[in-house]
């Protein structure tokens, strides 16, 4: 029989290589999916246990301000009021993004609309370096610079939501900036040239054309910034004061979901109500990060122009 004909009909070295390649790449990707799934399953099962096994009230968790999981309240249920931490987390996040957004948009506009190539590259390096600084270093600077600054100029101990927000402001700034730059770059240049040709000033063009066209992208950038701020643990924990009390203002010692988690997990025993309650906080973090993800997806779908 024709040897070539025979070869073409049979398996060869290449068929084996292809099989090995598929096995390797499929198993790598499945491993990642498995990791994501197990993170959700493990954290969720632990976090739900507070309510199913320890009989805590879901309503208390979200609306009560008494956080003392090892003690029980008058109704005999553990005191798992997470409202102070939830408030703290949202407080620092919203405030940080509020500070960061104008800075990010300004910097991004400078990079895309005003700067020379050199200036743009320089700011690119600046934002990349800001991303690169580890969060504990931000926390350390926060402790040494931001906390005394807040104490002197705003009063109080210096620990609190305001300090946390200042630290997070610098941390999310590069994220929001670089994503805003991407969305500004995606605005077709003929939009701008048309506006300029009609006699609009540069600022009118930026304000009425460029920013408007880039709005969905900028929103996405802000949400990514919020996601980063919401999930940041150590830098915030170092400057917020770590009191599981309802914040009385921006200057009182408070706590966030992440700060209570980092402080608490080591001091509680696995399987106790005190420990489970912490996992419930972790579950809130997990769900929020999912929500931020979905929001970004939703805007991406709605905002296509």
């Amino acid at each position: 029989m024709d040897p070539i004909k025979k070869k073409i009909q049979n398996k060869s070295k290449e068929t084996r290589q292809e099989l090995i390649g598929k096995i390797l790449s499929y198993s790598s990707i499945l491993l990642i999916v498995l990791v994501v799934l197990s993170i959700f399953i493990f954290v969720a099962s632990k976090g739900i246990a507070t309510f199913t096994q320890n009989n805590a009230s879901l309503k208390d968790f979200f609306f009560s301000t008494d956080w003392s999981p090892t003690a029980v309240g008058k109704d005999g249920r553990p005191l798992v009021g997470a409202l102070p931490m939830i408030t703290g987390s949202f407080g620092v996040t919203l405030l940080a993004v509020l500070f960061a957004t104008p800075f990010a948009i300004g910097t991004a506009l400078y990079m895309t609309e005003i700067a020379s190539k050199k200036g743009r590259n320089f700011l690119q390096i600046v934002t990349e370096l800001l991303v690169g600084i580890p969060s504990v270093v931000y926390g350390f600077i926060g402790l040494n610079v931001v906390v005394p600054f807040v104490r002197e100029h705003f009063g109080g101990s210096g620990y609190g939501i305001l300090s946390g927000a200042f630290v997070l402001f610098v941390m999310v700034l590069p994220t929001v900036t670089s994503l805003t730059v991407d969305s500004l770059r995606a605005v077709p240049s003929h939009y701008k040239s048309a506006s300029l040709a009609l006699g609009a000033t540069e600022w009118q063009t930026i304000y009425k054309v460029t920013l408007r066209a880039a709005l969905p992208g900028i929103l996405t950038a802000v949400i990514f910034g919020m996601a980063r701020a919401f999930g940041e643990a150590l830098a915030v924990q170092m400057v917020i004061g770590n009191a599981t009390l309802m914040p009385k203002g921006l200057l009182s010692a408070s706590s966030t979901l992440t700060s209570v988690l980092t402080m608490g997990i080591g001091n509680t025993v696995m399987g106790t109500v005190g420990n489970n309650a912490l996992w419930s906080l972790a579950l809130v973090l997990l769900v929020m990060s999912l929500v931020f993800n979905l929001l970004v997806k939703w805007i991406g779908r709605k905002g296509r122009f």
């Binding site: 073409i8 049979n10 060869s12 292809e18």
Partner: peptide, 11 residues
Amino acid sequence: SKINVYEMRKH
């Protein structure tokens, strides 16, 4: 689909 495409492409 039964053909070994890699071997075939060598020819």
